[in-house]
Design a protein around this nucleic acid. Structure first.
Lengths: 204, 204
DNA sequence: GTCTATAGACTGATAGAC
DNA sequence: GTCTATCAGTCTATAGAC
């Protein structure tokens, strides 16, 4: 038997869904209240204001998107190849479960960049100082490729995330249903690590 | 001597900028009017409503993003290597001039996918049936790589567009000012075609 | 904790003068 | 074409009863 959802959890759950679909500006507290089976008074009883509720949702979303990464890239026990496989696979899982998550976070960060600093508290240098980046740098030197590690990292994320972000266009130009989308992600789950390792001349 | 901007053009110009920064929901007609040096009455005199003005802006934005592509990929006089160079370079130019354009369009297409059909009229199969895709298919067969051409196309767009879409995060983790951003794009303008050609085993 | 009712502020749009 | 003034509608948030 699952424990019953509290009203507070129910509100957060539907708020997350509606904020992701419509964005902050187009979401009305009434929509959230109605979808949660309550009223706006109760919503404000729990969260004080729409903005405070949104800040909780967006902070959790940002953390969901980045915590996926952090424990992988800071691990000094795993090699480069394993890290590439794991990052791509974890993100594929996250995106299949929450296809709207990346565009939601990116859009809100664009219109309110200060959210990143205020709500998350991930230091800016955590990526550049990571063990993963040191491993990338080492490998790039080994194959005598004079580019910054960030480019390889950007490539890995780009190849994984773009089909998710551009899903409406993919649906249009590739006539995809939701199964087609999942299949596409599954195919790329295998391909992206190969491409990234090729860029690094890592033997597969 | 440049011809003077009409009021109508001035409104569209600032509306485009503000819609792109804040999105439809958070943009107020008063913001647009003030930025254009007029008032909301005049805005409605020219465009009837906020929504009609927005539809004009988003339709033009979608066209700007895709017309860049269409005349390149349908050309049967240019080879694969040239097409890759040209697509990447054109998009780099577009994104440097309008960094908010891609995320704006992608966000709006997610919340209103029918915009693609209604406002643009680009048939879904124009990409799959393009000369570019036939050239990709040919080359993939030649190197005996059993993947669909769409993956290479997605990769090319992904590697070019992601730093632009994730600019707020890039600023944060890479301590970039606007010069840093331009430099980053300039570096990738050269790198992305190399990576894509490597995937296709095209000799550079 | 949850509701009804409503205050209070803001927004898009228009009427009407010039 | 452009303005001032303002209306009607919508939204968030709160007061107060239960």
């Amino acid at each position: 038997m699952q424990p019953q959802k509290t009203t507070e959890e129910k509100i957060k759950e539907v708020a997350r869904k509606i904020f992701m679909e419509k964005g902050y500006g187009l979401t009305r507290t009434r929509d959230i209240a109605e979808a949660a089976g309550i009223n706006t008074a109760l919503l404000n009883y729990y969260f004080r204001s729409k903005e405070k509720l949104f800040n909780i949702i967006i902070a959790e979303s940002i953390k969901e998107l980045f915590s996926t990464l952090l424990d992988i890239i800071e691990n000094d026990k795993t090699d480069l190849s394993y890290k590439i496989d794991t990052v791509v696979n974890r993100y594929a899982d996250v995106f299949l479960a929450s296809p709207n998550l990346p565009l939601f976070v990116l859009s809100e960060l664009q219109s309110q960049p200060e959210l990143f600093f205020k709500q998350v508290g991930i230091p800016g240098n955590i990526l550049l100082d990571s063990y993963f980046f040191r491993q990338l740098e080492e490998q790039l030197q080994k194959i005598n490729l004079k580019i910054e590690p960030i480019h390889i990292f950007v490539n890995m994320i780009a190849l994984t995330i773009l089909p998710v972000i551009a899903r409406p266009i993919m649906n249009h130009v590739h006539s995809m249903d939701s199964d087609g989308f999942s299949n596409f992600i599954e195919v790329r789950r295998k391909l992206v690590p190969i491409w990234i390792k090729d860029m690094l001349k890592l033997n597969n």
